[in-house]
Amino acid sequence: MVFVEYEKKDSFMHRLDPRSKLILLVTIGWLYILYLEPTPLIILLVMVIILGHLSKLPWRKVLKRISWLAVLITITFFVLSLWVTKPEMFTRIPRELASKVIFQITPPGTPFLGYLAITYGGLLYFTACSIKALLALLVACIFFYTTSQSDMIQLLSKLRVPHTVTFIIMAAIRFYPVISIRLQEIVLAQKSRGWQLGGLNPVKLIKSLVPLTIPAFSEAVILAERFAFAVQCRGYGLGKIGFLREFKFTKADYAFCTFLLFFTALMTILWYLYGVGML
């Protein structure tokens, strides 16, 4: 998994109602879309780091998990920033400064690639996008680390996702480790008879997958059949599924959500009236 898995801990974020955490995702997501300039994004990043601290997030593990993705995203944004050369792309910072070239890669009118250069505006765009990527990864980590799978299922139910869909998602999440282990078994079993993946030739590759796909499909069908029978034997289908421990919106949730909504509203107004966060 890219993000850290849920761990049962006693932290401020763990205690929050998953709906509050959903509001956090939505508000941060909104500001994420809004802002293109690094300064307010740094403020958001600091806030998220504080929230991470309040979640008792295992930082070393988090950085290990997201580092390769962060590097990949950073490289991608850097490459994209090379196209940020036109002054009309900038509204808030002086266009002459934004489009000032630090290093030219291809001259204007180059076929296919166009005009590529490292500009001040491009660097700002690159920095902002990288911070945004880090922000998104950290928020996702906080959410997954502090919300149990059963809370997520209950959250879907509260969001009025149909009961059958919720149950299918629950079964899929629950069966993932079982199917994953059994798939590994199938691969090992075929390897023990000299099976190898069929190289780069697409026909050979597909043909070589047959010894994996047939047992995998058969295993999945058997599992699904047995599971369907097992849940019916436990009364599934008699009524709407409930949850043993329902969420409860506490004072801390009200305070947290009020702060989030107030902060988001303020930042949106600043963006709208004064162009805060625009490039």
């Binding site: 149990s148 059963s150 629950m170 629950r174 097992a230 009364g235 289908g237 709407k240 409930g242 043993l244």
Partner: peptide, 29 residues
């Protein structure tokens, strides 16, 4: 009638032992 098969993993529905045991009674409302 309660039915239990040879493969215990097909009977696991929920994410904790307590929730799993509660699955049946919850279905009964």
């Amino acid at each position: 009638v309660g039915f239990v098969s040879e493969d215990p993993e097909v009977h696991i529905v929920s994410f904790t032992v307590e929730e799993d045991v509660a699955f049946g009674p919850l279905n009964l409302g």
